[in-house]
Structures are given as structure tokens and as C-alpha cells.
Design a protein around this nucleic acid. Structure first.
Lengths: 336, 336
DNA sequence: TATTTTCATGAAAGCGATTTCATGAGCTTT
DNA sequence: AAAGCTCATGAAATCGCTTTCATGAAAATA
């Protein structure tokens, strides 16, 4: 009862040509007489022949599939990148093998290895941190890897990002200009370089420029979630900070809602700026001022770069930095 | 400069056994003498051999890959299902080829076909509507298909869902019990059976039971987005409705924010209940009363069913209906 | 017209595994 | 000790395609 599959051999026989010719027709090779092409196409149509991509992959050593490693699909930030990746991949006829890594190093290595076993032609990696082990795997991989929305201070893996440090610096400077002296910084784990080496750096640079003292008691490490935000809020309130820069939109939403519920007015008592400009920033009241990032494009550009690498072309630039912006919403006061 | 790959043949030679034996070792076939197994494993380790999944797929006719068709990864509702799918898939050593369909029929058919060409062992389909063409493709596919969070009133494709009609009926009854006479219904496109045949049915049943008249002017068709909600709000306000059931959380958030900004109090002037209990329902103020669904589990159960089908096992039940609930938040008044 | 090129095509060798079948060695069983 | 089994193993076919190379025919050149 197994459904019969039509192979290239069947087509060749019916069309009275060789398999090679059928293969040429299927792959759009120009070296086929138009009459022959027509004949073959007719048979393909009649038999409803569909080339087997696995066999093709084995023979050609190209799977037209790329692996995408994502911390968690349900995270809007990364999902938005993934959408950009998939659209461009589809445009270039690639499929996406998507796997969640939960940002866990060991899992990331595993996943990368199974992707390589599946003979993906390339990999796009998203994550908050890259450790030595992972970096070594990237090197060892025989398929090219591109980082999307993901920094690696050490490695030389091609990547697409915004200038996180500069963005945070600008946002914090923005707060300083409105007179804030005690500005809290609410981040994800400091073990991740995106936090420890980029956001924190931008924060320090802004303070420095304004000759404000850096106080590590104002730097908070929490999770990337709404609940983490609500739990963190009282701590921030106690610190005496009058403004906070937050590394994740859901966390920022948690901070805002908890503030208001505990009688802390936003933006009057606490100004809030967040990082990712996801839909969450528009839903809260007050809506949240945010760094804006071209999320979709980060993914799209990363995939474009990957297609070049997969075709052994040179990259114009290995590290692409896309522009960011800052959009003011009601969680900060207008500039004076 | 192409990196050398180690094949099963290399391992066989180095270990002085046949390829068949190596294959047995790799696949955990018990018919191998322990000493031989050890010897082979040592060589595998030494050469860092990784089986080529493509070759394996061709020979065994199983790719250990399943296709997942999703309207849009950036939609939290579907992304949550996808997360459940991926976790279970990983547990069973399957990989996921994920593709966005934008809910577009033609695209869905295309995607399904390329998935079949890639020899996926099964497919999980998510979408808001299934038309005849798609249904026909499901039949034609030689790999099993399971629907997740997706209804097909006609087909007999295995599926995992909640009882949408009953859930809506309960939610609306809930509103009726608090005295509402004019209850609006804000849905996505009525061309989709989830709306036209399930949610609408539940709504009508509730009215019917309470002997309230059905007025199709109170049924609104919009998009699944925050902006669609803000645009719809004035229309709902004009209708004189004192409560609304909404088919999408972001839309509900838009309605709530727009209401409040235009001086309509929620829940005093307008009570709101929504459908998916995503994080959005907790972020708005007031937070939104919602139908609760085991999103992750819908995906997980669908994937579990698919693994059974892929191993030619019988399904206990073809249509799985998971329990739903209703969680009251501040967008509705307490029951009297 | 003779010679060289170009073009369209087919034969056949892989690609790297799995899997069937045959075989012989070592054990049981009578 | 003969016959029958079980178990571990290898040889070789196979999966469905791509790709190289050879070949003859047609077109271009001399």
C-alpha cells in the first residue's frame, strides 16, 4: 500500500532518453535541444515526477538546506530575525532546519553537529553568547556560519548586528541629559557578552562622558522575561535610581507595570528605555521608549551573506553593522 | 582546501571490518560482538567519523526530519505551538524544517510539496484555514500529516485542538451572565473556518441559549494585529456594544488601549475577553481575561501523534481535544 | 571538400550509507 | 559424534540522483 514513487529512471524510459538528459532538463541545463526538453517535460508532467531532494543532495553534495540555531522561537526578538532569514532563504530556494538551543552551550554544540550531519549548506546562528567550544565548532564545520543579532567579541565569524554599545550609550546619554544622576541598568546574565561587553560598555561610556560615577550596585542581572521584570522592580525602586535602561522588552514591561502598581510613576518617578522595539513596547501604558533595530533585516542580511559564502563568493564586509535608532514613547519625558 | 570527510568506508578499513559491521555499530544493532563493537567505536572516535545523514536517508528512506508549516513564526500563538513541536521532535531525534506560509493557500501547497521532495517523514501543519486543494495535497502526500491548533471541519486529517466553539460559548455566556445584551465579536477573516465555523458558532450558541437576538452587525472581521484592534475600536464603540469577545490577543490589546485613550473605560464601559492567553494578556492594563489553551502541549501532542504515525502505529484517537479554561483578569468584572 | 568546433546525448561511475542474504564458526542437543 | 541452531560477519545490491567523459552529428571554418 506504500505509495509508488516515480524516479528519474522512469521518466528517462518513458521519454526514451537517458537519465542524464532528464537530469539536465530538471536542472535547467541549457545543453538540451528544445524538442527534447519539451518531450521530457511532457513525461514529467504526465507521470507527476518529483525529484528526490535527498538523492540529489547525496549526488551533488548540496542539500539546499541551511540550519538555523535560535535560543527560543517564542522570543519575539529572535523570531523576527528568523522571519527575515526564512524569507530570503525561500527566495534563494533554501529550506531552513530550525532548532531551539535555549542559549545552552552544550545544546548549541549538539545541534550544530546534527545540522552538519544533515549536510546543511550553511548555518545561521543566533544566541546571546559564544564560548570557546562553540567557536571551535564553527571553525571545524565545513559549512559556512553567519551570526545574526549575535556578537562574538573574539571570533572572526561573519555577523550582522547593530552597534549595541553605541545604541546603549546614546540611550543612556539621553537620560543623563534630562538630569538623571542615578541610572539603573537591567540586563540579562552578565555571563553573556552581549550584556557584559556591549551594553555595559555603552552604559559606562555614557556615564564617563558625563563625568558621572559608575556604581555597579545599579547594574542588575535578571532573566529575559516579564516576571523577571516585575520581580526586579522593587529592587530598582529601592536603589534610588530615577531612570533605567533595560536589555529586554518583556522585562521592561514587567518593570513598568510593577512600578505603576506600587505607586511609582513612569516617567515621572522612573524613566524607562528598552532595547528591542518589539510590539510589547507599544502595548504597555505608558508605551516604552526604545532603541529600534531593523530586526527583519538583520536576519535577511545574514541570510544574504550566507548565500554568498555558500557559493564561494567573497564577502564585501565580514561584519555588517546596521543602523539603529531611538524612538521616544511615553516612558521617557520629552527632551527639554 | 575542501575539508576531508571521513566515510563509513574509511572506518571499515581502519577497523578491519566490513561497512556492514560499522553500520551496525553506529545504529546500535545488537548483533555485534562486544569486542568488535569496541574496536569500531575506537576507530570512529579516532577518525572523528560522523555519519552522513543524507546518505543514510537515501538508503533507509527515512530522513528523521519532519516538516512544519506555520503561518508566521513571529506570531506568538503559533510560535508557542512550534516550541512544543520542536521539543518533542528533538526528544525523538527528529529535526524540523520550518517554513512560513503566511496563511496563503498557494504558498501552503508549494511548501508542502518542497517538504515532500525533501523526503520528510511527516508534516505538522498549522494554519487558519484548509481549502480543498490543500486537503487534496494532504491525501496525496506519502508522509503522514497532523494538524496542530488548526481545524478542518471536513477532512479527516489527525489533529490536536481545543474545543473552540465551546470555549467561545463559555466566554460569551460569562459575559451574558453579567447582564450584557449587546456583545460584539471581533474576529479574523470569516473566510477562515476557525472563525466562521467555530468561534462564530460558539457565539451564536451562547446567544441562543440566553434567548438573545443574533445581530450580524456586531460581528467584525479584522486582521490579527494590534493595529487592527486600534482601528476597530471606534467602530465597536459606535455599535453600542458593552462587551466584546476577541479572536486574537494582540487585536484585543489594540482594542483595550484605543478604548482607554478615547475615554471608554475597560471593563466599566466595555468588557473584553480574548482567545489565546499569550503574554500580551498580562502586559496590558487592564490585563485581559482570556480563554486559556495549553499551547505548548497542543504542539507537543501533535508531534507525539506524528511519531506514532511515522512508525505505522495506530492512533488512539484521531482528533485530540485538549482542555481549555478561562482566566479572569481585570478586563472583565467579577462574577456577581 | 576536408578539418575543426560545437552541441546534444548517453553510459557509467560515483555520492555514503542500509540491508538482504550467504557463510562459517561455535554451541546445543540428541 | 552427527545434526541442527544461533550468532557474528562480509559481499554486494540498492537508494535516486549528478556529473564526467566519450561519442557521433551538425555547424563552422579553412
Amino acid at each position: 500500500m506504500e505509495k509508488q514513487t516515480v524516479t528519474i529512471y522512469d521518466v528517462a524510459r518513458e521519454a526514451a532518453v537517458s537519465m542524464a538528459t532528464v537530469s539536465r532538463v530538471v536542472n535547467g541545463n541549457p545543453n538540451v535541444k528544445p524538442a527534447t526538453r519539451k518531450k521530457v517535460l511532457a513525461v514529467i508532467e504526465r507521470l507527476d515526477y518529483r525529484p528526490n531532494a535527498v538523492a540529489r543532495g547525496l549526488a551533488s553534495k548540496r542539500s539546499t538546506t541551511v540550519g538555523v540555531i535560535i535560543p527560543d522561537v517564542t522570543n519575539i526578538y529572535f523570531a523576527s530575525l528568523a522571519r527575515g532569514i526564512d524569507d530570503i532563504a525561500m527566495m534563494y530556494k533554501y529550506n531552513i532546519i530550525l532548532t531551539n538551543s535555549d542559549d545552552a552551550g552544550e545544546q548549541e554544540v549538539n545541534v550544530l553537529n546534527t545540522l552538519m550531519a544533515k549536510q546543511v549548506d550553511g548555518v545561521i546562528f543566533m544566541g546571546n553568547h559564544i564560548d570557546d567550544k562553540l567557536r571551535a565548532e564553527f571553525k571545524r564545520a565545513k559549512a559556512p556560519v553567519v551570526l545574526a543579532g549575535t556578537v562574538d567579541p573574539q571570533g572572526d565569524t561573519p555577523s550582522v548586528n547593530i552597534d549595541y554599545a553605541a545604541a546603549v550609550e546614546e540611550a543612556v546619554t539621553n537620560l543623563i541629559q534630562r538630569g538623571h544622576k542615578k541610572i539603573a541598568l537591567a540586563l540579562g546574565p552578565l555571563s553573556q557578552s552581549i550584556n557584559a561587553e556591549y551594553r555595559l560598555t555603552g552604559y559606562k561610556r555614557a556615564l564617563n562622558k558625563a563625568k558621572l560615577p559608575y556604581d555597579d550596585k545599579l547594574v542588575y542581572e535578571a532573566g529575559y522575561s516579564y516576571d523577571a521584570g516585575t520581580k526586579l522592580q522593587p529592587v530598582i525602586a529601592d536603589s534610588g535610581a530615577t531612570a533605567v535602561f533595560v536589555g529586554d522588552d518583556e522585562m521592561a514591561a514587567g518593570i513598568i507595570n510593577a512600578s505603576i502598581e506600587s505607586g511609582v510613576s513612569v516617567p515621572d518617578d522612573l524613566e524607562v528605555i528598552t532595547s528591542n522595539d518589539t510590539i510589547v513596547t507599544q502595548i504597555t501604558r505608558p508605551a516604552i521608549t526604545s532603541i529600534t533595530q531593523p530586526l527583519y533585516d538583520i536576519g535577511a542580511v545574514a541570510m544574504r551573506m550566507l548565500t554568498k559564502l555558500m557559493n564561494d563568493k567573497e564577502l564585501d564586509e565580514k561584519t555588517v553593522t546596521l543602523p539603529y535608532g531611538i524612538v521616544r514613547r511615553a516612558s521617557t519625558k520629552p527632551v527639554e
